[in-house]
Every structure is written in structure tokens, then in C-alpha cells.
Design a protein around this nucleic acid. Sequence first.
DNA 1: TTCTATAGTTCAGGAATTTAGAACTAATGG
DNA 2: CCATTAGTTCTAAATTCCTGAACTATAGAA
Lengths: 112, 112
Amino acid sequence: MRILTHPALDDITVEGLLYALSDPVRVRIYAEIVARDVPQPCCALMELTGKALPKSTLSQHFKVLREAGLIRSERKGVELHNTSRCDELKPKFGVMIEAIMTAFATQQTSKE
Amino acid sequence: MRILTHPALDDITVEGLLYALSDPVRVRIYAEIVARDVPQPCCALMELTGKALPKSTLSQHFKVLREAGLIRSERKGVELHNTSRCDELKPKFGVMIEAIMTAFATQQTSKE
DNA sequence: TTCTATAGTTCAGGAATTTAGAACTAATGG
DNA sequence: CCATTAGTTCTAAATTCCTGAACTATAGAA
């Protein structure tokens, strides 16, 4: 396994962030990582959408979130601990991420 | 040509909006539509990215923006006039669209 | 050390999407 | 009716995405 790479703040783009969050599964994953403020291993998020996702698919989704700059993944023993990079992003992107997640949360609650 | 359809506010989703704006060409198109507050025909935006885009490609991009709920397209003679639906979206999505476009504008100006 | 288990990545294919040239439709003005 | 401009639809090639199978990484136990 190669070392996990995270983009520098300068290499993170609005388009990349939006693309990462434009997938229903990925935005839910990111919302959970933000909501539970303890670092989350991938496996904790497997059944997020009701049906269990294949782990290769989940791994790809985490990779997209990571390479977009939304999360940081650090190995802790056998797991990866995933945390939001929102504090880092805020100076560059302002309230964008928060505004997106607020809108998403509203949408989710109104779906019930 | 079929009649152009626009989604009802209820059918517009956060994911759909983010997806539409996650493409570098589409976000530029939308930024121009918002910036020039006169309705824009597609043809006015053909050379947005330096190289002229094929009109079929441009048409698809407008379709994505339209079906996501970001713009409204109305026929005026031989042209389509495209306007932002941001006022309609605001009650449902709060400052999300504005926050995205602000971040995008900042990114564009810092690129020069 | 070696065996086993768990967590996650990478590979490879088929499936789905996107791009763009060509042909088509829609409206306007001679 | 013909020509022109604006934009859509069709279609095939190129690209990207999904996922099962194989692989790598770490830890704990024997």
C-alpha cells in the first residue's frame, strides 16, 4: 500500500470539493465524519445507505473525498482514522462547506 | 424540439446542484449568468474557457444546469434566454449557492 | 516466527457517462 | 419559400465508475 497522500491547501479547488460532495453516498459519509467528531474508520460507515456497500466501492469513495481535500486519513493500527479537514479549508473557502452541509442536513431531515 | 422542462423546487437536490457546479465549464457558465444580470443566450458563452466549445457540448452543459434547477431557459425568438433561479432556491438552500459562487470567484481572481 | 483475522487498496472487466461531429428542428427575415 | 442563426438530438468513441477478486498492511495469538 502506498502512503496515503493528501492535497496541499493550494491544490484544493472548489470544483473538486463540489464533485466529491455531489455523490449521495459520499456526502452522507462526509456528513457522518463531521457529525461524529471522533475519527471514523471506513468500516464504521459501511451500512450508511441501508444496503451495505462493497468495501472496494467504499474505498474509492474515501479516496475521492481524500483527494478532493475534504478528509484526512491516518493509519491507526489496522484501521484508518478519517477526520474532516474543514478547519483547514475555512480560510480559503469561507462558509462554503458549512453552507453545503447545512443544506444537506435540512434536506435529509425533511425527507422523513 | 421538446418543450424545455425545469424541475419544481421540491425536486431540486443538494447533490444535483453540486454536481452541476462541479464541472469547470459549467460553473463558469453559471457564474457568467449570475454576473451579467441580463438573460444570456447560450451562444454568448461559447468562448468562455478560451477555446471555443462545440455547440453540442455547450447545449449539454446548459441542459445539466437546467435540470439541476440552477437556471431557467426561455425561448426569445431564435435564442434561449438563460437566467439564474437563485432567488427561488434561496428559501430552500439558504446561502449555499452564494457561498459556492463567492468561493469560486475568489479562486478565479487568485489564479491571475 | 508463523498463522489468522481484520482493514483497506489495487486490479480488471463490464456498465454507465461524457464528449463532440453530423444531422435535425425551431424561429426569423428577406 | 429559402437562407440564416440558435440550439437540440443522435450516435459512436473516449472516459469514468462500480465491484468482485486478489493483494497488502497491521496486530494478536500460538
